[in-house]
Simulated scan of single mutants.
Amino acid sequence: MKFLAAAALLLCANLSLAQSATSTATPAKKEMIAKLLTLQSQSYDQLARSLMQQPLGNLMQGAGAALQQVPAEKREATAKAIEADIKKFVDDNAPMIKDKAVKIAPGTVGTLLDERFSEDELKQLLAWLESPVYKKFSQINGELQKALGDKLLAETAPTLETRFKALQQSVGKHLGIAPPAASSAPAAKPAKK
């Protein structure tokens, strides 16, 4: 179902672009494809943001590691500045990606729908996407994903964090980079006077 939603997500342009000059689709089939394009249009923002997640995740991960080298008194301000830059990047670029998806979807996804789905299958797909059950499911899908993600993170974060630190140390060792002093030995307690 995620694949269908992702594919349909790319479908929000006018029908004339969705059909090639050699298409033999009937007017009814063209109309159903156009309707599918429209039904999924609200998912473009989510697609745009998800396309940026991996590279931004990698950047944030690297920045987090580098942030440990920043003096403690400047760390919080530096982290907030980085977070603001990343938010601005997403806010500035997500609309561009969404607009580009609108422009290229008809010639890609619309064409594939035309080629691979019969009129009857498109009718069934539209019936499902327009059904009250699907609409209800769509409304809570974000909540479902968040609940699963939160629980998954809570249960796996400690293990993954430990394993990731071990990986970082291994990579650092291969590169000849010594781990930060704080992580390689316990901090010395100040002497009492």
Rank of each mutant, 00 (worst) to 15 (best):
L4W: 13
L4V: 13
A7S: 05
L11P: 00
S16T: 02
S16Q: 08
S16H: 05
A18C: 00
A18M: 09
T24V: 03
A25V: 03
A25M: 05
P27E: 13
M32P: 02
M32Y: 11
I33V: 14
Q40M: 08
Q46R: 06
L47G: 14
M52I: 04
Q54E: 03
Q54R: 07
L56S: 10
L56P: 14
L56F: 10
N58F: 04
N58G: 06
M60H: 08
A65M: 14
L67D: 12
Q68I: 13
Q69M: 06
P71C: 03
K74S: 09
K74I: 01
R75S: 13
E76W: 03
T78S: 10
A79R: 15
E83C: 10
K88P: 00
N93I: 11
A94F: 10
K98S: 15
D99A: 15
V102G: 00
V102E: 12
K103Q: 10
G107R: 12
T111Y: 07
L112Q: 00
D114K: 00
E115Q: 13
F117N: 01
F117M: 09
S118L: 00
E119Q: 14
Q124I: 05
A127H: 08
A127I: 05
V133K: 15
K135I: 00
K136N: 02
Q139L: 11
I140N: 02
I140S: 02
Q145G: 10
Q145M: 12
K146S: 09
D150A: 09
L152A: 14
A154Y: 01
E155I: 04
A157W: 04
P158Q: 13
P158I: 08
L160P: 09
R163C: 01
K165M: 03
K165R: 13
Q169H: 04
V171P: 07
G176D: 09
I177N: 09
P180D: 08
P180G: 04
A182L: 06
S183A: 08
A185M: 13
P186G: 05
P186H: 07
A188N: 06
K192N: 07
K193N: 04
